[in-house]
Design a binder for these strands. Structure first.
Lengths: 336, 336
DNA sequence: TTGTAAGCGTTATCAT
DNA sequence: ATGATAACGCTTACAA
């Protein structure tokens, strides 16, 4: 209904062929300077804009990438998790620099039919996957399809694809070691879906941290649940039933940790003094909780940017390397 | 490099023409049941998938909508604001039901060149705009282009487009009235970019609420700043300098309110008793702050869903009506 | 009921 | 340096 001005209209107005217009507009070398400027002037006067659909179709590209957030029915980390949102923002901003659009969607972790939708249907040129399952069927399919994608997370031993992220195991280990150093003896673990890579790694790091401190690993102190403050609150009750002498909690995300702190407050247990709490992610609100939350900082902005850059290397036919980003323990009031 | 199976391949394999395949795959009425099934079987055996680019191009559609977040350089509400993220999640989920993709992007409030990118370039079929400026150039352009779009926010008096959202003025008024009823006398206002519609409306509601309570409106108690916790912290300092007897603060977003509470805590001022704080949005963390944050609840999920539905009505050629959603004062510990 | 052919708007090949 | 023309993969008149 609008934009009915096509390249043919411009060609007619400029008295040349569509090929010449196309070349002029794409700064083709064979077009002399003055012809190019002349055609570009006509085009802009006519308010001509190439139809990206036609262009992408012809060029067999999409100029779009998909940022996908896996979820699992039972333990569905909502897309409203601040960590997700922050990395989404970072990715979107970086993509914008490249003139690419970004599709955001949630995909079920147990299936790979979304690979069809995004890869086979040619909806996007590449995929950014935020987190993954231990034996991720979607990733297998992406590889089988020879799709270009980058995964958020640390590089796994046998990994044959590109990932960008922090070493969750090391981060969790450091968090728990910190709790131990503060004199905590009975430290609980609250994680998300057990089969997600990051949760699994943090679970291992938790155990390693306890061992580092000479503390026993008690399975009763490990709870897996939803990635939500609500679920985390229930987990706290469970933990306290199993271990009334609990004096420390390591939560797999700040989003959860916030719920943990709130329920403790409601129970009249002073966070920091009675029970220390450490989270993960260092979302922007972490420093503003009360008490401010001790957590493992992940360079989210940098990570998002890097994922995009790596993806473009892949799209460019290069062999990109995975990168493990540094994390940092942010000691705040919730644990001291 | 993959998916090189086109409709022509299927036609050849099935011994029919491409038109017949196309019709069979699109459940065209003229194709007899058994032929259809036969062709569909062949297609799925060959793992055929239509190229959405080609299909959309031919159909002159995009099957994609853009969810755009306006920002302004000076007062750039970051896309990481939990409210933005939550509504983005709601929209994305609803869009998924329709089989549509959602492009997420930030657009500068002072320009309208993004209209070219999304509308003229035919990148999307419609637009969801989250918030707007008082005299929004982008919206004017969208209307001039006859684009299909829905805006988040309450319906303005002269408004000739569709919007979905809560009545910010009424919400703010209620928030401030609540503070007044709790005996607060010196209530400050911390808002975002002054020329954004929602901030402006809340500013007006703030004044109305004060008047309702028989309190004077003091311009010195009104501060406009960035939509971030950091900025809100500075705003608190400003307010306290101007009015050391400040006993209440109404912040335009929970994201800001969290920063407000933290800085007050750092200053040793007890939130709730000494200074009451009320936020806006009721983001998922609001109930988990400490103290839990009194705020104006907006039905974000419902709002996102409704925006999508309204947009599809427009795309369908219908004349959709704006809808004002109910808000609700959530009284929590930060104000009592 | 099915096939032929045109066309969506662009770029690329091959001439000239 | 530029213009015809084909082609990208699909849908849809129009014919048969």
């Amino acid at each position: 209904m609008t934009n009915r001005v096509t390249i043919a209209d411009v060609a007619r107005a400029a008295g040349v062929s569509t090929s010449t217009v196309s070349r002029a507009l794409n700064n083709h070398a064979a077009i002399p300077e003055h012809t190019r400027q002349q055609i570009q002037r006509v085009a802009s006067e006519m308010r001509y804009r190439p139809d990206v659909r036609a262009r992408n179709f012809r060029l067999q590209q999409s100029q779009t990438i998909a940022t996908l957030f896996p979820y699992q029915d039972a333990s569905r980390r909502p897309i409203s998790d601040p960590f997700y949102l922050e990395i989404m923002g970072a990715i979107t901003d970086e993509l914008d620099q490249y003139g690419y659009d970004s599709i955001i969607a949630r995909v079920h972790i147990e299936t790979d039919d979304w690979c069809n939708r995004y890869v086979l249907d040619k909806r996007v040129d590449g995929i950014l996957l935020i987190d993954r399952a231990l034996d991720d069927v979607g990733i297998h399919t992406l590889q089988a399809l020879d799709a270009k994608f980058v995964v958020w997370g640390a590089k796994l031993p046998e990994q044959t694809y590109v990932s960008v992220g922090c070493d969750s195991q090391a981060g969790a280990r450091e968090a728990v070691r910190h709790l131990g150093q503060m004199g905590r003896q009975r430290i609980g673990f609250i994680g998300g879906f057990e089969r997600m890579v990051e949760t699994d790694a943090r679970r291992q790091g938790y155990a390693a941290g306890l061992t580092d401190c000479g503390l026993p690993v008690d399975e009763a102190l490990v709870v897996f649940t939803d990635f939500t403050p609500d679920a985390a609150q229930n987990a706290v009750h469970t933990l306290l039933e199993r271990a009334p002498d609990l004096d420390g909690i390591f939560a797999c995300s700040d989003f959860m940790a916030v719920g943990v702190m709130e329920v403790l407050r409601q129970m009249g247990r002073e966070v920091g003094r009675e029970i220390a709490v450490v989270g993960y992610d260092d979302i922007s609100l972490a420093a503003y909780c009360s008490p401010p939350l001790t957590t493992i900082h992940q360079p989210i902005q940098q990570g998002g940017r890097l994922m995009v850059q790596k993806l473009f290397e892949l799209l460019d036919g290069q062999a990109a390397e995975s990168v493990v980003l540094p994390h940092e323990l942010m000691v705040r009031k919730s644990s001291v």
